[in-house]
Amino acid sequence: MAEYTLDTALLRECLASGLYYLPQTIQLTLYSLIITLFLGLFCALAIYYKIPALSQFCKIFLTVFRGTPMVLTLLIVSLIYSSNIVKIIEYFRWNITPADINILFLGVLVLSLSFLPASSAAFLGALLSIEKIQFEAGLSIGLTTPQLLRTVIIPQVIPTAMPLLMNLLLSGCKATALVYTIGIVDVMYGALLPCAKYYRYLEGYIAAAIIFWGISIVLNFIINRVSHAVRMEKIDDNTSFNAKDTRNIRPGGRGYAGTRTCEKVIR
């Protein structure tokens, strides 16, 4: 590296360029999360009800994507795509060239598949935690299974699965940073654009880091508010070991810590 100081002008340029593509990143996150929620619920239900063939297929499917790093999935999918897209265009006789296609959908595809293990685990865990009696009571009053699911079970599953799904939101947003490797235009791509001119990449990555950090802070804030609104216990920052800090300990001996749940950490 020729210089050893930070080029703040370049940094600002990268920030602006990165922020310009923020909507793309948001779209990526949103679309893939919505798809993964539906697919995750579907898989969880299939596994929970032990539907023959379908549940085994889902389990294998989930194992594959739980074990494969997202970057590898990206490489493989993009490889399959680029090798075959021409053939597909010819086969369907579309009137387009490969360059016309917005490969955003590839990113959404890979992201939703990579999130699938986490979302189905969230739903499956929530399903398993619902007592059998809820199902039995619903069936005993004459509900069919689809009605039962729609009116009784899923409304209970969603709040229970919320903490894990919120985690998924946070880590999902970070995961979108990888899709630039297959050429998708998002914040990363934008932040690195100005760097190509000067061959200095540090400022670009720092800009991208700042943008993602900001996103995560905003998301965390929103999630905290939503959690409070839905009254879920979570580990908050108001806990400490200091004995003098008796505001957290109420008479009767039940300290605050007894009501805490341990959040699952997904990178």
């Binding site: 004995a243 003098k244 008796t246 300990i249 008479p251 001996g253």
Partner: peptide
């Protein structure tokens, strides 16, 4: 609880 200092 004040006796054994579980509360101060």
């Amino acid at each position: 609880r004040c006796i054994n200092f579980l509360e101060r």
